[in-house]
Amino acid sequence: MLTDPEARRLLDAVKTLVSANKINFPSLQSYITLEASSSQTSDRFQIDIQRKTLNVKKCTYQTRYKKSINLLRIDIEGPAHPNPDGTEIPCPHIHIYREGYDDKWAYPLSSEIITDPNDLVQVLINFLEYNNINKIPEVISQIEVN
């Protein structure tokens, strides 16, 4: 388990994708995982883009640390998320690691984080920026994602 300051340090760390290749945005019913590392420490991260559904508008973007600690997640399209206090947060929303709760708390998704939740490729670019990924490669999409 991480403390909130440790999670914040990990989220704020400048990161570089291990592969500088273009990113192939996943098609429906598939997903990709990008490997990243901190340029300041030896920390490593996995960034998942999941479209394991037939709903063309639904996508989940997630940042993991040590393969099993979910630091950050954005859900586009889907049901509202029930928070531990009983409040419900509609999609799109963001989950940020919280000590003692992991990623069980969701928050409304700000337009300062994601500029257009209807453009799934742009959401990926914004998500990578929010993760402090430097040198974001081009994202290629062979399918219509809007």
Rank of each mutant, 00 (worst) to 15 (best):
A13E: 15
L109C: 08
Q62F: 05
N126K: 12
I47N: 04
P84G: 04
I96Q: 05
L120W: 01
E99A: 04
E77W: 05
T115Q: 11
S19A: 14
R51M: 01
Q62V: 11
N83D: 12
T16K: 15
A20E: 12
I114H: 12
L71P: 07
Y31T: 09
L54E: 08
T63V: 15
N55F: 07
L28K: 13
L28S: 13
V139H: 01
T53E: 01
A106G: 10
L2Y: 00
L17H: 09
R64S: 01
Y65N: 07
A7F: 11
T53F: 01
S39M: 12
S141K: 10
G100Q: 12
T115G: 11
T60Q: 00
I76H: 02
I133S: 04
L34H: 03
K66V: 02
S111R: 14
S110Q: 14
Y101C: 07
N126M: 06
R64L: 00
Y61N: 03
L128W: 02
I94W: 03
T63S: 02
K52C: 02
D48L: 04
Y101V: 08
Q50H: 01
S27A: 10
Q29G: 00
P84I: 14
Q40I: 03
F127L: 07
E6Y: 04
V14Q: 11
V123K: 08
A7G: 09
D103P: 06
H93A: 09
R9I: 06
I23G: 00
Q142G: 03
Y130R: 11
K22I: 12
A7E: 11
L54P: 06
C59G: 02
E35C: 03
T63R: 07
I94F: 01
Q46H: 05
D12S: 12
A36C: 03
N55M: 04
E77V: 01
I125A: 06
I74G: 04
E144C: 05
I94E: 08
D48Y: 10
L128C: 08
V121Y: 06
N118F: 11
E129L: 13
T41D: 05
R98N: 12
I23A: 02
E88M: 14
I47T: 07
S110A: 13
R44K: 15
S30Y: 00
E129N: 09
P79L: 09
K135Q: 15
T115V: 13
L17D: 07
